[in-house]
Measured scan of single mutants.
Amino acid sequence: KSAVKALFDYKAQREDELTFTKSAIIQNVEKQDGGWWRGDYGGKKQLWFPSNYVEEMI
């Protein structure tokens, strides 16, 4: 599983989504079709976030 870095702040709209700030590192990313991926951040595990808010880390 990979890690991504947030390009923008994102505030969860639902309880199954992540809230994060710009430059946050989201771990254990599971990529899905449809523009939403799952990952771990801030003590939350495998919640959804919009993939267009992040960049992949190499």
Rank of each mutant, 00 (worst) to 15 (best):
V4P: 00
W48I: 05
L47I: 00
E30D: 15
S23A: 12
L47A: 15
W48D: 01
W36E: 02
I58W: 14
Q27G: 08
G35W: 06
V4W: 13
W36N: 03
P50C: 08
Q27P: 03
E30Y: 14
S23G: 15
E17P: 00
F49P: 03
Y41V: 05
G39S: 01
T19M: 03
V54Q: 01
Y10I: 01
I25R: 01
A12E: 05
K1Y: 12
M57E: 10
R38N: 05
W48L: 12
L47Q: 10
E56H: 08
N52A: 14
K31N: 03
W37C: 04
K11F: 14
D33N: 11
N52K: 11
V54W: 01
I26K: 00
K31W: 05
Q27R: 13
Q13W: 06
W48C: 06
Q32N: 12
K22L: 07
T19D: 10
I26H: 00
K11Y: 13
Y41K: 01
V4R: 00
P50F: 03
A12M: 05
K1T: 14
E55H: 09
K44S: 13
G35F: 10
Q27I: 15
Q27M: 13
G35R: 08
K5S: 07
K45P: 04
S23F: 15
G35I: 10
F20D: 02
Q13H: 09
E56M: 08
N28R: 05
V29R: 00
R38F: 04
V4I: 06
K1E: 11
P50L: 06
K31M: 11
Q46H: 09
Q46L: 06
A3N: 13
G34T: 08
V29A: 03
G35T: 08
T21S: 13
Y41M: 06
G39K: 00
I58M: 13
Q27A: 10
A6I: 03
G34Y: 07
E15N: 11
L7Q: 06
A12Q: 08
G43D: 12
S51C: 14
A6Q: 02
G43K: 07
W48N: 05
R14M: 08
A24I: 07
Y53M: 13
K11T: 15
E15H: 11
G39F: 02
K44W: 10
K45G: 05
K1C: 14
Q32H: 15
T19R: 01
I26L: 06
R14V: 07
A12F: 00
E56S: 08
D9I: 03
K11L: 14
K1V: 13
M57Q: 09
W37S: 05
E55I: 13
K1Q: 12
A6F: 01
K45Y: 14
V4Y: 14
W36D: 02
E15T: 11
T21K: 13
A6V: 05
I26C: 03
Q27Y: 15
K5V: 14
L18N: 06
K45D: 07
L47P: 03
N52C: 14
L47V: 04
D40G: 01
Q13D: 08
E17C: 08
Q46M: 07
S51Q: 09
V4N: 04
G42Q: 11
Y41S: 05
K5Y: 11
R38C: 06
P50R: 01
G39D: 02
A6M: 03
A3I: 15
G42D: 13
T19Y: 04
K44V: 08
G35D: 09
F49R: 01
A6D: 04
I58D: 14
R38V: 08
L47T: 04
K11N: 14
K22S: 10
Q13K: 12
E56L: 09
G39R: 00
A6R: 00
N52P: 06
N52M: 12
Q46R: 09
S2M: 13
V4D: 03
W36A: 03
N52L: 10
S51F: 07
A12D: 02
V54C: 05
K5M: 12
Q13T: 12
I26V: 06
I25F: 06
V29K: 00
W37V: 00
G39M: 02
I26P: 01
W37L: 04
K1N: 13
R38P: 00
F8L: 11
T21P: 15
D33W: 09
A6K: 01
Y53G: 03
G34Q: 07
F49L: 03
Q13G: 08
E17I: 01
T21H: 14
M57I: 15
V4L: 05
K11R: 12
M57P: 08
D9R: 04
G39V: 00
G42L: 09
D16L: 06
R14H: 12
Y41R: 01
F49T: 01
K11C: 15
T19I: 00
Q32L: 15
I58R: 12
K1M: 13
K44G: 11
F8W: 10
D40F: 02
T21L: 13
A24K: 04
R14N: 14
G39A: 00
Q32S: 13
E55V: 14
S51R: 09
L7K: 11
Y10W: 08
A24S: 13
F49V: 02
D40P: 01
K44Q: 14
K11V: 15
K31G: 02
T21Q: 13
G43N: 11
P50G: 02
L47W: 05
S51E: 08
G35L: 12
I58H: 13
F8I: 09
A3Q: 14
A24V: 08
K31T: 07
T19G: 06
K5C: 14
K1D: 11
F49D: 02
Y53K: 07
V4F: 13
K44D: 10
Y41E: 03
E15V: 11
F49H: 03
M57H: 11
S2Y: 14
N52S: 15
V4S: 04
K11P: 06
Y53H: 10
Q27W: 14
I58T: 15
F20A: 00
T21N: 13
N28V: 04
N28H: 07
E15P: 14
K45M: 13
Q13S: 10
F8D: 08
K5A: 07
M57Y: 15
A3P: 09
Y53Q: 06
I58S: 13
N28G: 05
K22Q: 13
G35V: 08
D9P: 10
L47Y: 12
A24L: 04
A3H: 12
